[in-house]
Design a protein around this nucleic acid. Structure first.
Lengths: 245, 245
DNA sequence: GGCTGAAAGTTGTAGGACAACTATTGACTA
DNA sequence: TAGTCAATAGTTGTCCTACAACTTTCAGCC
């Protein structure tokens, strides 16, 4: 059984590798919704790890709403229709999330420039001086149709020019992956917004209604890396949450 | 060290009792934000449980965004300004959430009646026949000020008349607690809504803008118990989410 | 002062054991 | 036959002990 965890230098914990792998297996419909998966003992043997590690991984997936662990009975795949719980708690790139939902993600760049940070950006990114930042305006597409408009400001003082150049037209998270410095945490706020200033193009919603996810991403050292405002077009993107006790 | 877990007949797991207790201690500011809490070994000794149990409890709180567990270093209380992560993933009553945020919760009943279920309600509650349901319209107040309007439909076919009567003017969750049948899961959807039909009174938002949390609550046996639409007044309630990898 | 390496402290993983709970089976009874 | 009940096997929850992996501290040395 090969895991192919650790994508780069930084090695993910064993628990994380297994949790990721089982998550992928669930989303790949290896088990039907409601079906009982292998017992912890079996999984531990297959993955060649201890039961403790498997248990921790399964617990994570239970938190994420994918599994239901029943004492004395077994562990079952949760039934959530066609949609996948959005996982607001898990830090994933938009592209990854869209892909997991079964669509094909893409981006459409509208603005992509390096300029001085505004006052609000300085505050959010904890900059003392108005240094240079990378500013992006993009439409997020699923199967070619816009589902959100994203306004991102990225602190580039500690990034090489090559990486910055890459970000200007590709995925921000993927670029950060190449230097192994993807953010590991984000503090997000959710708001309902109505505004004529947001979005562009023919697929822009006529009622000006958006669900705004405003967040600051932090590096492993706790430094702010990116400040982004993502405006989800109401009705185009399903925010599904499985809540548990 | 007394835990006072199991509030009624149903016994909560050890892990859950400890997780709840530590959560309360964190929210009571027993440790400052950023501060390192006791080691797992210490906690295990204090609570008189194994380290495994403590670890599981801490993992839960880490997932909820309250703690940061660092390998080789220790476990730290997360720093999130004044606000408490809303915990969209944890199933809590509105009152509990508001109380945890440091406000005093209350309810204002507008409608409270028993009537036949509508078609949509029948679908959501999985009823074959249009049986009787309890319908409530309430304003949710924090420190006397409305933060949300809630429209709830409760399946009462399996409830005693006394419990139903209690719900008509008190907390739904508290009433369900008395017979030990609080829902353990909810499937929720989040939307931005603009509507003139929602809410009432002088504190109703003039811009008609709400964040709608529409959800179905399920019992331990998987049966739908309640269908509710809670319209949060945009700007009055902070939906704060800590996202982690 | 600054570097090095040992040591102590903490979380992560292992393995084995038993407790607690669930689901199934089959015997027994009315 | 249908229903009840007890035994049983299977699964998750908790405990114990030990060690690996990592971080922080600090004494000792240059």
């Amino acid at each position: 059984m090969s895991l192919g965890g650790e994508q780069f230098g930084g090695r993910a914990s064993l628990t994380r590798q297994i949790s990721d792998d089982i998550r992928a297996r669930i989303l790949a419909k290896e088990w039907a919704p409601g079906e009982k998966i292998n017992s912890e003992a079996e999984l531990a043997e297959k993955y060649k790890v201890s039961r403790v590690t498997v248990r921790t991984a399964l617990k994570t997936l239970e938190y994420q709403g994918l599994l239901d662990i029943r004492h004395g009975s077994g562990t079952y795949v949760n039934d959530f229709g066609r949609a996948i719980p959005t996982g607001l708690h898990e830090l994933r790139s938009m592209s990854e999330t869209i892909r997991e939902m079964g669509y094909s993600p893409s981006m459409e760049f509208k603005v992509s420039e390096i300029r001085n940070a505004s006052e609000k950006e300085m505050e959010k990114l904890q900059l003392d001086l108005p240094e240079q930042v990378l500013y992006l305006e993009r439409a997020v597409l699923a199967d070619g149709k816009p589902v959100a408009f994203s306004y991102d400001t990225i602190s580039i003082s500690s990034l090489s020019e090559a990486v910055v150049e890459q970000m200007k037209s590709g995925s921000v998270f993927a670029s950060l992956d190449t230097i192994n410095s993807r953010p590991i945490r984000a503090l997000a706020e959710l708001n309902a917004v109505i505004s004529k200033e947001i979005g562009w193009g023919p697929d822009r919603p006529k009622n000006d209604l958006f669900l705004l996810l405003e967040q600051v991403h932090y590096s492993g050292e706790g430094d702010p890396m990116m400040y982004s405002k993502t405006y989800f077009i109401e009705g185009r993107f399903q925010f599904l949450i499985l809540r548990t006790r």
